[in-house]
Write a protein that binds this DNA or RNA. Sequence first.
DNA 1: TTTCATGTAACTTATGATGTTTCATAAATA
DNA 2: TATTTATGAAACATCATAAGTTACATGAAA
Lengths: 148, 148
Amino acid sequence: MRKDSRLSRMLHVLIHMDQLDAPATSEKIAKMLNTNPVVVRRTMAGLRDKGYVTSVKGHGGGWSLAMALSDITLLDIHNAMGDSSVFTIGLSDEHTSCPIEIAVNQAISDVLIEAEALLLERFRDVTLDKLAVGFADYPLNQQTSSGE
Amino acid sequence: MRKDSRLSRMLHVLIHMDQLDAPATSEKIAKMLNTNPVVVRRTMAGLRDKGYVTSVKGHGGGWSLAMALSDITLLDIHNAMGDSSVFTIGLSDEHTSCPIEIAVNQAISDVLIEAEALLLERFRDVTLDKLAVGFADYPLNQQTSSGE
DNA sequence: TTTCATGTAACTTATGATGTTTCATAAATA
DNA sequence: TATTTATGAAACATCATAAGTTACATGAAA
């Protein structure tokens, strides 16, 4: 089952964008992520729809952060990535009348719900500025101007 | 991303098998699960390798439980299903040297590890006999598809 | 030896993330 | 206005994996 790396990629991009003065083009971002500009637009579109970034067409255009990293959580970006379920585990035929199958699915579902709740709670606790902190000794991060 | 329903299916089967006197053939199990006998053999093989079920070829053969339901946990069966990761979420390029990407992946990984640990802990707490309680009399032959 | 059942290889299908090509559209600039 | 630079979006290909299918070999019982 192919992994969904969009969350990781977008967090990475957003933190880098915070260090830039000008908008970053899809082309530039794509090179940073070793991927394709169209994939970047497709994924960034979800973040734009939720107001985390803005896009500008034409000359000098590109993508910009729309708010401070400290105002964005892992959960925000996770949610912006859309409907995809967190687990590879699924239930069997959910329209069954077999009480055993119902009990089995209920038991699995209970655990998945609890584990996902924990995951989302942890995601909500992490703002993006926390991920950028700790690298203040790296040249690229020394000129960080926002928040702090 | 297609869901992995093997855990649910196998739990369902094992509990039913506990109610049978004779071995259950792959054909019979397949009808119960609305699937194919080869899929059943393929999945049951993992359980046989771990000692939870036995298989017998030829006349009167089939699949049998090798131990009591009370000695098998959700975690046992989950582990027997193999390598598959629990989450659809993945990390981006893990051989990067970018400190931001490393920090992002570390943050996500921390959460996934914690959530998976909770999930496995809960799975370990549930023995299969707990799921069968109250349904001991439900006849297996009511499980087959009503169509056809 | 015939029948019934598992064992297994090989192939197909389904699904969703990812990658690619192509063109339309909008904005800055000469 | 024409050109350049960028996003927007449609259409299609690729990749990975669970699931489904076909075909045949193997082994055990009657």
